[in-house]
Amino acid sequence: MSYANPPRKIALVGIGKIARDQHVPALQASSEWELAATVSRSGSVEGVEAHDDFDAFLAARPDIDVISLCLPPQPRFDYARKALMARRHVMLEKPPGQTLAEVHALQRLAATQGVTLFASWHSRMAAGVAAAKSRLVERVVRGARITWKEDVRKWHPGQDWVFEPGGMGVMDPGINALSILTEILPEPVHLVAAELEFPENRHTPIAARLDFTGNVRAVFDWRQEGPQTWDIEIETSKGSLALRDGGARLEVDGVAEDLADHPGEYPSLYARMADLVARGQSDVDLAPMIHVADAMTLGRRVTTAPFEFDKEKT
């Protein structure tokens, strides 16, 4: 007689909007995971053991050997380092850190400690991405246009950290597009020019225009009201291909593809994490973040109107 393995205990650190909207539902629906604890200064999940001090949690619950960090990128390195030093497997929300050097340090530490480190890119798990990648294998890419425009007030309401150093500004959603681009293109591209719009009262950009080799261009904007736009349109030697709604829909020559049932981006991420832990492997692909870092060094700065989350202050 065979028995299914019991769910593996996991702790969720940082109970904010993304944790409530995506991580908690994915974990609660999974047969592979048991959300055994949360760590947050102010948030909690009903029915789940709650902690407000990470060091105390690590000492109190050595039986929870997997930790998912949903904190903003600024404090994430210190939490990840403590978790890895305690020999816990760690999953990082995107972007995986404030800087490339931070994540490289975590990668080395995870290898030394013999634990898994997963730098997750949720948009790569969108329903149409794998199919688009498969289609492009047999085509020559002539060029691509990325349009990623959304409303920061809707997706990051009152979250000033996105405009602080390390918060990346509009690159926070833009990196989702770059994670798809770096996943599906048969040949890599690199940035050659950029223009970044900084509100005069903020430290990170609210809009960006990026030019890459291979005739690839991207426009990111955090000021879009009404319908939101997350499109990647690609011209190839055999016609056109487009990923829309952040990769949820695939069109080939203007015709929507019939995609198989998809479990969702975050359930797919946690399935990937379970597999990595079981295999004793790590997955730390920094290609999307390299493009962001390049934009910050190559980008021409343009100052634009001040931004406030409260429209009445603008």
Score class of each variant (00 low, 15 high):
Gln224Thr: 12
Glu251Arg: 15
Ala242Tyr: 08
Gly214Thr: 11
Leu243Trp: 07
His203Asn: 12
Thr236Asn: 02
Ser179Thr: 07
Gly166Asp: 03
Arg209His: 11
Thr213Ser: 04
Pro186Lys: 04
Gly239Phe: 01
Pro199Lys: 12
Lys238Arg: 14
Pro227Asp: 13
Leu259Arg: 10
Gly239Val: 08
Ala193Trp: 10
Trp222Pro: 00
Asp231Met: 07
Glu225Gln: 13
Val189Gly: 00
Glu233Thr: 14
Arg202Lys: 15
Met171Pro: 00
Ala274Cys: 06
Leu250Gly: 03
Leu210Tyr: 07
Ala260Val: 12
Gly264Val: 14
Met171Asn: 10
Glu251Ser: 05
Pro227Arg: 14
Asp253Met: 04
Arg249Cys: 03
Pro199Asp: 06
Gly169Asn: 08
Ala208Pro: 08
Glu257Gln: 14
His190Arg: 14
Pro227Trp: 11
Gly226Gln: 14
Leu181Lys: 06
His203Leu: 12
Glu233Gln: 12
Ala194Met: 06
Leu259Glu: 08
Ala208Asn: 07
Ile206Pro: 00
Trp230Cys: 02
Asn215Phe: 05
Asp258Asn: 12
Pro227Phe: 05
Ala260Arg: 15
Arg209Ala: 07
Ala260Asn: 10
Gly254Lys: 07
Leu178Ser: 02
Ser240Gly: 08
Arg217Gly: 09
Asp221Pro: 08
Glu195Met: 05
Leu181Ala: 01
Met168Ser: 06
Leu196Asp: 04
Asp261Ile: 13
Lys238Gln: 14
Leu191Asn: 06
Ala256Met: 12
Glu251Val: 06
Glu233Val: 15
Gln224Tyr: 04
Asp211Phe: 07
Gly214Tyr: 07
Ser240Ile: 03
Tyr266Ile: 15
Tyr266Met: 14
Pro267Met: 11
Gly174Asp: 04
Asp231His: 12
Leu241Pro: 01
Asp261Phe: 10
Pro263Gly: 06
Met168Asn: 09
Leu269Ser: 11
Pro188Trp: 02
Pro165Met: 01
Gly246Trp: 10
Met171Trp: 15
Ala256Leu: 13
Ala194Phe: 07
Asp258Arg: 15
Gly226Trp: 15
Gly246His: 11
